[in-house]
Design a protein around this nucleic acid. Structure first.
Lengths: 172, 172
DNA sequence: ATTGAAATAGTCGCAAC
DNA sequence: GTTGCGACTATTTCAAT
């Protein structure tokens, strides 16, 4: 249903990244179009090695290299963060499976806390969001549905640090 | 403090994307390394035009082209979704400003709902997460702090659809 | 802002280690 | 898995519209 390939499914086949892989990814995280020759020069290996590594990383789904729209630079977006408490996890799984197929749904996760499922959705208008919520809350098995609308996005890193070179301390 | 450029700040200067921009972005969203000549061929303009457009889009911060690690393909990650209710929005702004500087913090947004601030953080271990939460909850001005840990990521699209070609209806 | 053309640079395929 | 090389292709610069 989505126009994205279903490369990021539920399965979590783990791939082992070595030091070189990690350094390549870090460079491509700064600039996804950095020439392989430039990466090779910086890391002290041949261009062919970089090319082979990047192909392996992308083919395995370990990384994706894509253009991303900065939501702050676009017009108004109606973004909602939704928490769902379900009657059981089978129903949660069923609802989640439906949600991941929708283009408007950008984030779905099972969580441990006061609710079971966390969802982020994005629409061009509040009307679209209302339609979504109306359909969602008509679903059976939902005990509670808490919605928060995003007023302002301050940071959307879209990524995970492998190893932070900085201290993780949080001091004001 | 972060090793990322602070290109995605609080300011939301809106850029107007025309049809060609949108088509370019959609192609680069499928493959961030698609050659400009290929894009030009598909869209019926010269390669130089694509290059100029992409440069303008990236320089203005409207888009970023980056490699992203698929969290499902990595080893265990300790991801937490945190909701904060603050005594007032000045304190919320102050805390948010500190949070966006941290590499472990991947998402920060002001929201309207039963809490004020929504935050996503990622650590390699639960110990790192515990340290973060300990420091966070020692901050003044926090009325309530609700944390959910991610058990399984089902979808992380990291992006926004501009115009969906598919229906947005949510029917089971 | 877009284009075409020439010079430079990167990518790709492959044989060898 | 990595490398070097040759053929091919893309990118870059720039003058012109």
């Amino acid at each position: 249903m989505s126009d994205e390939p279903a490369s990021q499914g539920v399965e979590g086949a783990q791939s082992n990244l070595d030091e070189l892989d990690i350094e390549i990814v870090q460079l491509l995280h700064k600039d996804g179009r950095m020439p392989f020759t430039e990466i090779a020069k910086q890391l002290g290996v041949s261009e062919a090695t970089i090319r082979n590594r990047v192909q392996r990383l992308t083919n395995s789904g370990a990384i994706t290299i894509q253009a991303y729209l900065n939501p702050n630079k676009l017009g108004f977006r109606s973004i909602a963060l939704i928490e769902l408490k379900m009657v059981n996890l089978e129903r949660a799984q069923a609802i989640a499976s439906e949600l991941v197929e929708q283009d408007s749904v950008s984030y779905v996760a099972f969580v441990a806390g006061s609710y079971d499922l966390f969802v982020e959705v994005t629409y061009d208008t509040n009307e679209g969001l209302l339609d979504f919520l109306t359909a969602l809350r008509a679903k059976p098995g939902i005990i509670n549905c808490e919605t928060a609308t995003v007023l302002k996005l301050l940071k959307t890193q879209y990524s995970f640090q492998i190893r932070s070179t900085k201290s993780s301390s949080f001091s004001s």
